[in-house]
Simulated scan of single mutants.
Amino acid sequence: MRKDRSRPSSTTLSTLLLLTLATTVANADEGDVTATLGGRLHWDFGQFENDRRGAPNVDDTEIRRLALEVSGKLYGLEYTVEGNFADLQDDFSVEAIEAWDVLVSKKFSAGKLTVGQFKQHFTLDDRISSNYGVFLERSLFAQTLAPLYRLGAGWLSAGDAYTIGGSVYSLESIDEWQIKGRAFGGRGTWAPMHEAGRVLHLGLSAAREYYDHPGRDGAPALRIRPRPAGHLSDASRLTLVSFGSGRDTDVDKTSIEFAAVRGPFHVQSEIGDARFDDGGQSGRVDSAYAAVGWFITGESLPYDRGGGRFGRVKPNRSSGAWQLALRYDTIRGRQNLYGVRDFSDTSIAATTAAVNWHLRSNLRFLLDWTSSRNYDHLRALTLDRTQALTGRFQYDF
């Protein structure tokens, strides 16, 4: 959906902030203002084996992420301005540039305050950077129900073995301003074991979101539609729940996390759910995944205690690090009118095997094979089966 040109675009807002920062730098004493440039390139491909039940997915390649970031200090504050330029390959205009982090933050003795647009505190899988994820795609729950980048104010406290983060946020973002509503949520983690090569992680996330009139007055309908076999598998998307009658809709989300590292082996699992209610009908989405991995070359998955998540892999040898991983992922959505049986009950199950080559700490190649199945439980009918071979070349700085 293209943005209304009467409102500032993400590029306009980011450019104004960058100009303000540049002016401040020019008039500041050395050390008052700093600026560092960063970025990432993720180039993906997908090849599909489709059955005859649904529309076929088309083999394709894409620049998935082409991001640039400016971050630094500003008179005792920290700032970040980050945008994704990948959509310029399809629409070469400023409207195609997507804003990610556009924020300022301040550290205090008790924690860190962040104001602006940033990724909310919700689920382990979503909090891990796309630069460090074991698989090309996040779990079905994280990719569809995590709040992602939203405008708001957040707080994060971290101790030796715990993190507590929370935020109040709008359901709007700089780019997706048509979504109206407000929300609050938080995440807590505890890592009683967090040595190099020996990690035990537990976590809990929760959020409450209030959507204003989805499906009416320009607001899009609220639909949960995962991609079963990667970002290029649009033809296999399945609607799990849909709320678009124009009635205000409340959503409660929770997620429980577990992860562990023992030498070159690692496991990660989450159970999540979401409950929808618009006063006339209700819906629920339940999801779970479990993943295991092994570094053939002996490395260990590094743990970030300050964020309660996993971080960048550093190869032990010049030939790089090799990693194998396997994940089973399932998500199910049910919807019904008040006092009536479910009129929709569908699910997706996907198994993914991954081979990753970390040539350098900031350069890696990923290859995933995914087998997915869409199923209608009311009709006891398989709607779609898709197998996909997907890969990525990735570089960040």
Rank of each mutant, 00 (worst) to 15 (best):
M1R: 04
S9I: 08
T15D: 02
T15G: 09
L21R: 11
T23H: 12
E30T: 14
D32N: 12
G39M: 04
D44Q: 08
G46I: 08
S71Q: 13
G72C: 07
L77V: 11
T80C: 08
N84F: 01
L88R: 07
D91V: 03
A96C: 11
D101H: 13
S105H: 05
S105V: 04
F108K: 11
T114E: 00
Q117P: 01
D125N: 15
D126A: 08
L140W: 02
A142I: 12
T144Q: 08
A146S: 13
Y162S: 03
T163R: 01
S167L: 00
L171N: 11
G188E: 02
H194F: 00
G197A: 08
H201R: 13
L204F: 15
H213K: 15
R216Y: 14
L222A: 03
R227Q: 01
R227K: 14
G230V: 07
V251S: 04
T254C: 02
F265M: 14
Q268I: 04
S269C: 05
S282G: 10
G283P: 03
G283S: 07
A290S: 09
Y303I: 03
G306A: 15
R309W: 01
R312D: 00
G320D: 01
L324G: 09
Q335A: 11
Y338V: 12
G339N: 06
R341K: 14
A350M: 02
W357I: 09
L359N: 02
N374Y: 05
R379A: 14
T382A: 13
R392D: 01
